[in-house]
Design a protein around this nucleic acid. Structure first.
Lengths: 208, 208
DNA sequence: CAGGGTTCGTGATAGCTTCTAACGAAATTT
DNA sequence: AAATTTCGTTAGAAGCTATCACGAACCCTG
């Protein structure tokens, strides 16, 4: 049951976030200004404090949304029957779709800042999906990391073999490796297509 | 030949940068404040504008220093006879030594910002060292990426085989993959040792 | 339907920031 | 010793976050 007040409130919050995303996309999260958003919405400064406790809460909310959006993308790919490569491409598509959204989740952390609890939950959900898809793959030879993971796997379902954990972690870090460099523009001078490197990293993970 | 004025100037610039690094390490680059630095140095605000054109120039200078420091670390490792694994560990050590310095180079880019030309030069030097160390490794089977790189390799010495380029790029992205997630704290909830994952990624790159 | 409480948006204000401008003092050069 | 450059200061504009007090609009209840 939602009252008109709540509907209006939610609508305004949504519009604020919409403007915030635009601003972030064009100038980065550090340049996000409540004042500028308010003016662009036709109301003056402090009005936004009725809807967000402050700049930090707005950014936190955006991070939450970004995380949820990623989890949704990944889950949708898995539900659609995608294998690990399909998952990777879904992830890459999500990242390329809005690089600053990617960086909001995986970019430079602010030393003081502590992510809200539910983001770690969402992160866990992503990991669960990833493990599910990784499980239906041919086994690989045991590695030293598998043994180490055997002792630190409280974050994963006990039924998942450590070798699968290993592969999921490799998968995740390799995606991040290519994407973080690609999106930050560290390949621009070289002229090659980052997608090819992405696929090569993926192929190496999947074949042996 | 340096005049006393120039010496004093350089000394003050150095002290400003020292305070800037402290501030960045404790609160991130976005919280860097010229005003705060000036006050901590016992002089008032605008005095620093005699030494830096503005906040942006100071940060640019810090990025330059960070880049140079990384290049020096990598070169020193290579000169010391390190193999690819040694290079990787040197890189990881450099990153762990000051995470915010790492993020200044490889973290979230600001949409508007354009890195100064010499950083791409330094980046090229790092790549050169990396290619040199990668060259003295047993060959790997040809991959589709090798063919693609054959057509986009103006950034590398013609004598280096494309397969070596491929391996160097894989090396670089895998290091970044583990490090960016580790330094941003995305492994903290899981409890395992990121170094083990780092080594596993490295081993996979070196063995087949 | 009319009152009462809640919620909203405003302007004012404090305190912070970057950065420019004008002035006096200090140091260097002539 | 005089002239010039450089340095550090204070003052100020423009921007930001955030808090406060006030009036107006709205919703719920009697």
């Amino acid at each position: 049951m939602t009252t008109p007040r709540e509907r209006y409130r939610a609508q305004v919050r949504e519009e604020v976030k919409r403007h915030a995303w635009e601003q972030i996309a064009s100038a980065g999260a550090s340049a996000l200004s409540l004042n500028a958003i308010a003016k662009r919405m036709g109301m003056s400064g402090p009005a936004l404090y009725r809807y967000f406790a402050g700049r930090d809460e707005l950014i936190t909310e955006l991070i939450r949304d970004a995380y949820r959006s990623l989890a949704g993308t990944v889950r949708a790919a898995a539900d659609g029957g995608a294998d690990l490569a399909g998952l990777a491409r879904a992830f890459r598509g999500w990242a390329l779709d809005d690089p600053q959204r990617y960086f909001l989740v995986y970019g430079t952390p602010v030393p003081g800042y502590h992510a809200p609890d539910d983001t770690t939950l969402i992160s866990g959900e992503i990991m669960t999906v990833l493990l599910g898809v990784s499980a239906s793959l041919p086994e690989r030879p045991a590695s030293p990391l598998d043994a180490h993971l055997d002792e630190h796997r409280h974050w994963a379902d006990p039924s998942v073999p450590s070798a699968v954990l290993h592969r999921a972690l490799s998968f995740w870090t390799r995606c991040q490796g290519v994407l973080s460099l690609e999106l930050a523009g560290h390949f621009t001078g070289m002229g090659f297509d980052p997608e090819q490197l992405f696929e090569a990293e993926l192929a190496d993970l999947l074949t042996p």
